[in-house]
Design a protein around this nucleic acid. Structure first.
Lengths: 222, 222
DNA sequence: CGGACTGTGTCAGGTTTATGTCAGCTTACT
DNA sequence: AGTAAGCTGACATAAACCTGACACAGTCCG
């Protein structure tokens, strides 16, 4: 997938770029509307991440104009205070919006959601042993049994599901679950592992601790 | 592989250099950011080990700047006390971090992990007779049988696996397993050899004692 | 607006586990 | 047989991990 990120905050932009690159996407970065136009002229994108406040104009106007020519999904990045930003963002042609500060995992989830909506119904469920996990809705299903996960639990499980068999350290999990400026304890991961374990009981797979290294998902042993 | 170590503590730097050299890597050493820049201009590296606190600046800033131009994996070396060091290290562009003081074997393991992640996901398993050993997850497999090793056991086995047929003295093994400033008895090695032997029973290879000299790994005799 | 509810993250105390030492034993070599 | 080297079961310890309880902030709903 090829993304275009339009964002003038350098620090934030780099963090987002890195993260999306880790997921295997090619991401171009434009720090202004001017630069964004150049990028759009030069390449085809699958998704645009568009900040509202930009040095040379308002992202919404840009969106309104581009919509006539483009048919690319757009996710708006808005500041929390700018409530009015949200209102109308969707009207203006955005496919979704996300308020800053956001978790990277949430951004990833929204990107997937939007792309899925657009690109037809590519199934987005992940098989976990005999169970099926839908990270978008946060539901886990095995036959008749269905479990709803909370947002954090869902993201956590998603990270495991995307790295089956691999050991993930608490540090890695933290970086995947939390914003870079939020200072949470590693203990939070332990707590969530515990909560998640309770929920996935009887689903045919389990999270196993690898002492000193991290955690790993595995199909039920016995 | 060619590494660049950016670290101002002379003693630590030399120890790391020696160790990595033993693994057959070429390692350059820069004691400051200034020197690091010169090195980067002069050569291409496969991996950078970057201390956070340096006499002429913060390693993280350096990293943030370099990221634009470089695409080399970076492992940050942070002090345990400096919690803030760790926070965001990965977001700032590091591929991994390791807190001082660290065991050399852990450093090696992380280097391998990062390089592997970067260089595609080639499996990193080592053949030991009829068995396969994955030093990253610490699992040993022979056909259907799977054994999980503990961290120290895993590192110990790794040393043997990388030096097949060679006799390794207890001193050498200690150097490879423990931090240079930690004072452990040679008996500890004996104990671990014993534990490891128990675990690898039936895996088709064995650790044999060479009285007065050390130990050696060999395929099962009969 | 206030109270009930929910999702989150922290904390403190309890539990488990890896690790290294020790003491006494076995083995190999002279 | 004597001696040094190696082995091993038992143990203390500290670190890693788990978990019940709680505090806090949103959100919902009357």
């Amino acid at each position: 997938m090829r993304y275009l990120l339009v964002e003038d905050n350098q620090e934030l932009a780099e963090a987002v770029l890195r993260r999306l690159a880790m997921d295997g996407h090619a991401v171009d970065h434009a720090a202004s509307l001017e630069a964004a136009k150049d990028c759009l002229a030069a390449a085809d994108y699958d998704l645009i991440l568009l900040d509202v406040m930009l040095p040379d104009g308002d992202g919404r106007e840009f969106l309104a104009q581009s919509r006539k020519r483009l048919d690319v999904p757009v996710i708006m990045l808005t500041a929390r205070s700018q409530v009015s930003d949200r209102v109308g963002a969707l009207d203006q042609g955005a496919d979704d919006y996300i308020t800053k500060p956001f978790d990277f995992s949430e951004l990833e989830a929204r990107c997937r959601a939007v792309l899925r909506r657009r690109g037809g119904s590519a199934k987005n469920e992940i098989a976990l042993g005999p169970a099926l996990f839908d990270p978008l809705s946060g539901t886990l299903r095995r036959g008749e049994t269905k479990v709803d996960l909370r947002s954090r639990e869902s993201r956590l499980l998603e990270v495991f599901a995307l790295n089956p068999g691999q050991i993930l350290s608490k540090g890695q999990l933290m970086d995947r679950l939390f914003t870079f400026d939020s200072a949470v304890t590693e203990n939070a991961i332990e707590v969530y592992i515990g909560r998640l374990r309770k929920r996935i009981e009887g689903m045919g797979f389990q999270i196993e601790t690898v002492r000193g290294l991290g955690y790993r998902i595995e199909a039920q042993s016995p």
